[in-house]
């Protein structure tokens, strides 16, 4: 699975969790996920949906830089699914 594939599936999950289309211009960079205004439960649902979609379990050791942006999560998952 390429990084582009992972990102596309992530964005699809995110739209499902938000229950609305994503903005055309997504914020990027560290902390950018916060700019989308997810509530705590939406964030939790997003993380749980990722576990289901990619057949993996999150680990407590994941750095905060990973979980604060789509790019960070994408890179983390791309690496994880290739292992």
């Amino acid at each position: 699975m390429t990084e582009a594939d992972v990102k596309a599936r992530l964005l699809s999950l995110l739209a499902e969790v938000l229950q609305e289309p994503l903005p055309a211009e997504l914020p990027s960079g560290p902390g950018s996920l916060r700019a989308l205004g997810l509530t705590s439960v939406q964030l939790l649902r997003f993380f749980v949906a990722i576990e289901d979609e990619f057949q993996l379990a999150w680990d407590d050791d994941v750095d905060e830089a990973v979980t604060s942006s789509i790019e960070g999560i994408t890179a983390h998952l791309t690496s994880a699914v290739r292992r």
């Binding site: 964030l43 993380f47 999150w58 604060s68």
Partner: peptide, 15 residues
């Protein structure tokens, strides 16, 4: 809660 809750609440706390 598991790791998903930990990470979600951590992200929220840091925000």
């Amino acid at each position: 809660g598991g790791s998903a809750a930990y990470l979600a609440l951590r992200e929220r706390f840091l925000a």
